[in-house]
């Protein structure tokens, strides 16, 4: 009997190595502890054992059961491990590249626009939007542009046909529709809609009837800013632009104002910057923006009292800034969309 139990356990130990899957395991298990299993048979013979021997016998059987159970457990573990190994396959080669596409990317013009928006947001400017199709009133008249100003010529500005009818671009009266030449029209519409204080930037696509070359494009992007409040001064304008350009181009960037002329600001300035961070440019002053104090006539056209309010406006080209900060020498790269260009800005 003792011998029999030992044989069962030994046999189990000897045969378990061949058990390689769950079916084989179940057969193996049935052969030992199943209803007709070898161990079950021995247990069933318990009745024939003399009473006084039963405790010893029982103890031996329990021991054998435990040993068999341990064999089962290890067999199951091995099977599970084999199953996982099969499911997972061979170890990966971590040096292989991912078969997924390369990373996506935001276009550099979008990135520059977002960076500009981010900097201005720090100092309280939020983004305003308008339509690309505008009317002559909002693009020129309200901005104090003389009726016969050359910018209005068919030579320089794209117009829509005289019978064009736009459902969601409102007209002042019966003026012509055009493609906006700057985003200043957004300033006008924003002022007409609300009361000071106004503190907005308006990035967006603009159009001028230019022939495409290395620095001109049939459409381009601009960002303009407007601040209207009580007691806004020339110095405030300088302070804002200094802050902006230092954030954009790095510490130590300086700007200078040069007198200029725009119909919608008075006084008007062009802004040059100088930055040691942009080695390509050297130490020269580089033209970067236009700005000025809002012309009283512009306030008059939106119904603000120029005696009460003052303000400033500024504008700059997004392509130009992108070209400066990334060192891009041809504006056409922005519109070709060659992936080798785009992915550099991913």
């Amino acid at each position: 009997m003792e011998e029999e139990l030992k044989q069962i356990v030994d046999a189990a130990n000897a045969n378990v190595g061949a058990v390689s899957n769950r079916a084989a395991f179940e057969a193996f298990k049935a052969g030992i502890t199943g209803p007709n299993g070898s161990l079950t048979k021995v247990m069933k013979s318990m009745g024939q054992v003399a009473k006084e021997d039963r405790p010893t016998f029982g103890k031996r059987i329990n021991e054998a059961k435990q040993q068999v159970q341990a064999i089962y457990n290890s067999a199951l573990e091995a099977i599970e491990a084999a199953e996982i190994a099969e499911r997972l396959g061979p170890p990966i080669d971590p040096s292989l590249p991912s078969p997924d596409s390369e990373p996506g990317s935001l276009h550099p013009l979008t990135q520059v626009r977002e960076e500009i928006s981010r900097i201005f947001k720090q100092i309280g400017f939020t983004v305003a939007e308008g339509t690309e199709v505008e009317t002559e009133y909002y693009c020129f008249d309200a901005l104090n542009t003389p009726k016969d100003h050359p910018a209005r010529d068919l030579q320089d500005t794209f117009y829509l046909p005289d019978d064009a009818d736009f459902g969601n671009v409102s007209k002042k009266s019966d003026e012509r529709y055009l493609l906006r030449t700057h985003t200043s029209s957004v300033q006008i519409r924003t002022m007409l809609k609300g009361e000071p204080p106004i503190r907005i930037i308006s990035p967006g696509r603009c159009f001028r009837r230019d022939t495409v070359d290395a620095t001109h494009s049939a459409n381009f992007h601009q960002v303009e800013g407007l601040y209207v409040d009580k007691n806004v001064t020339v110095r405030d304008l300088k302070a804002i632009l200094d802050y902006f350009f230092e954030q954009l181009l790095g510490k130590g960037t300086t700007t200078r104002f040069r007198p200029h002329f725009f119909p919608y600001t008075e006084p008007s300035f062009e802004v040059d910057f100088s930055s040691s961070h942009l080695a390509k440019l050297g130490s020269d002053w580089v033209e970067i923006a236009g700005c000025g104090m809002v012309e009283p006539e512009v306030f008059a056209s939106v119904g603000y009292d120029p005696e009460v309010y003052s303000g400033f406006a500024f504008g700059m080209g997004i392509e130009r800034i992108a070209m400066i900060i990334y060192g891009i020498d041809d504006i056409r790269y922005f519109y070709q969309n060659d992936h080798r260009f785009l992915k550099q800005f991913a």
Partner: peptide
């Protein structure tokens, strides 16, 4: 869309 591996492009309006 960038997170979905798309590259942003900018084309002419006209």
């Amino acid at each position: 869309l960038v997170g979905q591996h798309f590259n942003e492009v900018v084309n002419y309006t006209l």
